[in-house]
Design a protein around this nucleic acid. Structure first.
Length: 135
DNA sequence: GCCAACGTTGGC
DNA sequence: GCCAACGTTGGC
């Protein structure tokens, strides 16, 4: 079981959209490091859902229900998608400023590699964020 | 294979 | 809207 963080601009695809649709394929990743992370995802892995740009922060949780396959939105075989399903939306999101000032989260890729759109999260970090969310 | 130029992402 | 960070492209 691994933990991940997947980013999306809420204007492009928000946690509310995922909640309404229940499940989606995570497309549009055009970065090799992010793609490699998606290829490493296994069914049952947990993803923190992160909103970027507008009120940046972790807003909820999704889980991997289908492992990497060819991105149907392109013919370029370099790119893949995974299937993710809605799990929950936090009552209060964990904001980026909150993450930045939290010593337990200081080593997150989110802070070091701010542009990586799919990144791995350590178990302790995942559990710490769940604690902050009161979940 | 190096590196400058350029484009994109994302925080503020 | 601006700008820093960083990935990619292309000339040499």
């Amino acid at each position: 079981m691994n933990y991940w963080l997947i980013k999306s601009e809420p204007s492009t695809y928000s946690i509310d959209t995922l909640k309404a649709e229940k499940q989606t394929f995570w497309s549009g990743v055009r970065n090799y490091a992010a793609r490699n992370n998606m290829k490493a995802m296994k069914k049952g892995d947990i993803c923190l859902f992160y909103h970027s740009v507008v009120d940046p922060g972790v807003v909820g949780i999704a889980k991997v229900v289908g492992e990497a396959y060819q991105d149907p939105t392109t013919d370029d075989i370099a790119w893949v998608v995974v299937d993710v399903a809605f799990v929950k939306k936090f009552k209060t999101s964990i904001t980026l400023p909150q993450i930045k000032q939290d010593k337990a989260l200081a080593n997150m890729d989110l802070l070091r590699l701010s542009r990586l759109s799919v990144q791995s999260v350590r178990k302790e970090e995942y559990e710490h964020i769940l604690g902050l969310a009161g979940a």
